[in-house]
Design a protein around this nucleic acid. Structure first.
Lengths: 339, 339
DNA sequence: GTGAAAGCGCTAACAT
DNA sequence: ATGTTAGCGCTTTCAC
């Protein structure tokens, strides 16, 4: 059977298409009898309103755009993937579709915007991870309701979902301190990223509270991407500078893995000679040896929360500024040990 | 400025909306002069045709639905994720949007179909991984062009993209044979899955070609899901039955990891006491010890290929039956060794 | 309570 | 070569 339309339903129910529409929208003052007739016809045809037709008249697409940079998209660790899954999940509950697109991490003003923005094919935008400021500026002109995940844009009036990185940094560092460590190094990257800064701040706060002096030589922060290979080289620099390190806190798991690689190559036993703790919890499923202690970020929940905020935002139940910090969790595995 | 429409453009260019439409569609016989006027107006407004309006009149949504089961979606290894990324990538090239949805792996006839099918909000369907037959049967009624990835449905006239599992099974087994192994075990799961069967067939073929007798006691195939824990228990059963195994070929990396775990726990050294090779190549990014030899499946390429087929299919350039086998590749790492 | 009718933005057949 | 017009399927006033 070809796609049934509202006309077919109306004819079958012997009412006008207006009545069918009213029934669909649960209008009051429709007598049970008419309603029943119409619903029966709808059922008989297995009728569903056309998405396009509805979108045209309502000036709503029913779609939410999910934006992240290409490099984030291509990462194999399930970080942004899990976030995406969360948004997708909550989108179903709210009858939205999610349209995903990537942008160039070096977005330039001559670059085209995502097609769904130009075509007005999204009602809202969820932006995950750090994106170029230029991009944000450019889309601002379109006035599309936007929710950020895992990135706090410099402009003040944003709605953002973040893991509690500061507390996470504190928690990780305190864990090491409680295990008796005093020579605790910090490895980080991309220090302009708000989350990384917070993790670093948490680290410093925990040391200070414990009366441990913050030592510049125990800190290695790359400007560039906090990935595996940078973790490797950071560990190399730190160890060469500083033989008495007994523990390392890395700003994420990827750097932790790189650092572990270096320590192993160098013959430094983990955790016996050196404890290490990461952040994110993206490697739990695999066989890493030793298994990595870390701070778990509620990735799916972040996606879910962002989509909930989006739903509120579109219902105008939300002011234009809000920062939601999601709780993190210490996961103790094998890579950290009491000294 | 509020969304510009074709009317605004027409007014500004002092032509009718029909002319604007013709220009947009690059109709022949439009003089350069008119064209230029119109294009200038389009540019001035930064006009893009509304997706909904176009969809309504063309009876096309511009969307492709991507379907997979919930359990596949939630797997943290980047297998289906990579496939999805591939489709997404190629979708951009073809000006499609991808709408993702999950279905219950135990889909029952009373279950609702994905909303985008009911709403006719997709022009085609890409189905990734094994899905319930009931589901396939049910969507067949909607007559939506469909491409399968990594699953060959029993019904004969399907368009499917698959890794060359048979060759992969052969390649993996031959690799072990060339390393001097003769006591080569096979671990598998979900034996009804076409890909798994093919890998197993490749294994048997390679053994036969090498004049090695196929020994039932060297084979452990679970009915259920080929995951880590089943890999663990399969290895346990095999080793207990059969002390002289020197190499194991598992039908995927997840089972390989489980098997490795068992061997380690049991004090069997990899690769010194026992070589092991997996399939899929989903763990390359992480620190596994030893690093796992495997057969690489071109995951992104499978997604790309599927979307290309979809584009052809929608252009009616494709018959309704086609099976594309994508080449696999042997990745030799540390877990396999010459005997 | 229900229907007629206008209109959302666009395409395409038909006029001119 | 360009304009007129009739829809595409739906929502929503406004009459009756």
């Amino acid at each position: 059977m070809t796609n049934p339309t509202i006309k077919d339903v109306a004819k079958k129910a012997k009412v006008s298409i207006a009545t069918v529409s009213l029934v669909i929208h649960n209008h009051k003052r429709i007598p049970q009898k008419t309603k029943a007739k119409v619903l029966a016809a709808i059922d008989a045809f297995n009728y569903y309103p056309s998405h396009s037709a509805r979108g045209l008249v309502n000036r709503k697409s029913g779609n939410i755009g999910f934006v992240l940079t290409e490099d984030h998209f291509l990462r194999t660790e399930p970080f942004y993937t899990q976030i995406f899954i969360g948004t997708e999940f909550e989108a179903h509950a709210n009858e939205f579709y999610v349209l995903l697109t990537t942008i160039n991490p070096n977005f330039r003003s001559s670059d085209k915007l995502p097609r769904f923005i130009l075509e007005r094919n999204v009602d809202g935008l969820i932006i995950a991870g750090k994106v170029p400021l230029l991009f944000i500026k450019k889309i601002n002109k379109f006035n599309i309701p936007t929710v950020f995940i895992d990135y706090l844009p410099p402009a003040k009036n944003s709605i953002t979902v973040l893991p509690d990185s500061f507390k996470g940094g504190e928690l990780a560092t305190n864990h090491l301190i409680q295990y008796g460590h005093k020579e605790i190094a910090f490895i980080g990257g991309d220090i302009e990223h708000p989350s990384i800064i917070e993790r670093f701040n948490g680290y410093k706060k925990a040391l200070k509270d414990a009366g441990i002096k913050i030592d510049e030589r125990m800190i290695d922060i790359e400007e560039s991407y906090p990935g595996k290979s940078n973790g490797f080289s950071a560990a190399e620099r730190l160890i060469n500078k500083n033989k008495n390190i007994t523990a390392i806190f890395t700003c994420n798991d990827a750097m932790a893995i790189g650092a572990m690689q270096y320590l192993k190559d160098r013959g430094i036993k983990i955790p016996d000679d050196c404890s290490i703790i990461g952040f994110d919890d993206v490697v739990s499923d695999n066989v890493i040896e030793p298994e990595l202690s870390t701070i778990r970020i509620p990735k799916m929940e972040m996606g879910v929360e962002a989509m909930k905020l989006m739903a509120d935002l579109l219902k105008k139940n939300l002011k234009e500024s809000k920062k939601v910090l999601l709780p993190i969790e210490l996961i103790t595995r094998e890579s950290t040990i009491r000294i």
